[in-house]
Design a protein around this nucleic acid. Structure first.
Lengths: 74, 74
DNA sequence: TCTCCTATTTATAACGG
DNA sequence: TCCGTTATAAATAGGAG
């Protein structure tokens, strides 16, 4: 979308990647929230950024407790 | 988007809700996949539909093992 | 539930600040 | 990082099959 067509490959440029991540992360969570509200479903989105930051969105009347384990190559 | 502006409230009509859920769920996961690829981040999306169905998307070089517990009102 | 269609709304890339 | 702007790409509501 936007000024150019997006190519589905890793954005090498750190700065561009950061900007895109910030924008798309926000919109993904917005879409998730919309889906939850519109269709009355419960959902969770977990995002683990390379910098070690963690972003989460969870909907639901009941609380979801989600434990995440990163299984390093076994 | 589309022919009418979307109103952010629960879609009461079962049929419309189902159709919207199907379309938006698909696109949400597509967006999630794009974000993961473009920005090289790991993420997971879990969707629990009212009908008891479960939809999931997880990215990542490492495998994420996610255990989900639904905590009924405690 | 899926596909196809299309008018319309939204998202967003690229930029400046 | 956030906030705007703008041209363009993409999503999607509503309908038909």
């Amino acid at each position: 979308m936007g000024r150019g067509k997006v190519e589905l490959k890793r954005i090498e440029d750190k700065c561009s990647s950061q900007v895109t991540f910030s924008k798309r992360r926000k919109e993904l969570i917005k879409k998730a929230r919309e889906l939850a509200v519109l269709c009355d479903v419960e959902l969770s989105v977990f995002i683990f950024s390379g910098g070690g930051r963690f972003y989460e969105f969870s909907s639901g009347d009941r609380n979801f407790k989600v434990s995440c384990f990163q299984a390093h190559e076994s």
